[in-house]
């Protein structure tokens, strides 16, 4: 419960702080997380196009990673990645040892199907 009283909040339920949902973190919903092998990324931005959670981080026209504070782990980015599924991989959020190895390999660009 927020302690703000009725005199302090805007009337009529208006929200004046546009886009303040960024303060609400949905990253904790994830059962799976995407990992990113930057080296092989062709910056086609398919992941950005299809991310339902505006959680693909882009700088200077380049995909630079995930907003893991908000990414819900749906895996769409991995599924639409056209680079033989090597650039983005879905792994369990609570990674097992073999998955940790997988994460490292993806991130180092060494992962092979």
């Amino acid at each position: 419960m927020n302690a703000t009283g009725w005199k302090e909040i805007p009337i009529g339920g208006m929200i004046l702080d546009a886009g303040n949902s960024v303060e609400y973190l949905t990253g904790g919903w994830r059962a799976f997380r995407p990992v990113f092998g930057e080296a092989q990324c062709i910056n086609c931005m398919q992941c950005w196009l299809f991310c339902p959670d505006s959680s693909i981080l882009v700088e200077d026209g380049k995909m630079v990673g995930f907003d893991l504070e908000h990414c819900k782990g749906c895996g769409i980015c991995a599924s639409v990645c056209p680079v033989n599924k090597k650039v983005i991989k879905q792994v369990g959020e609570v990674a097992r040892d073999d998955e940790r190895l997988c994460i490292r390999m993806v991130e180092e660009g060494k992962f092979q199907e």
């Binding site: 419960m1 927020n2 703000t4 009283g5 009725w6 909040i9 009337i11 009529g12 339920g13």
Partner: peptide, 10 residues
């Protein structure tokens, strides 16, 4: 429930 009531009070 955390704010609706406050808006009604307004």
């Amino acid at each position: 429930y955390d704010y609706y009531y406050e808006h009604k009070r307004q």
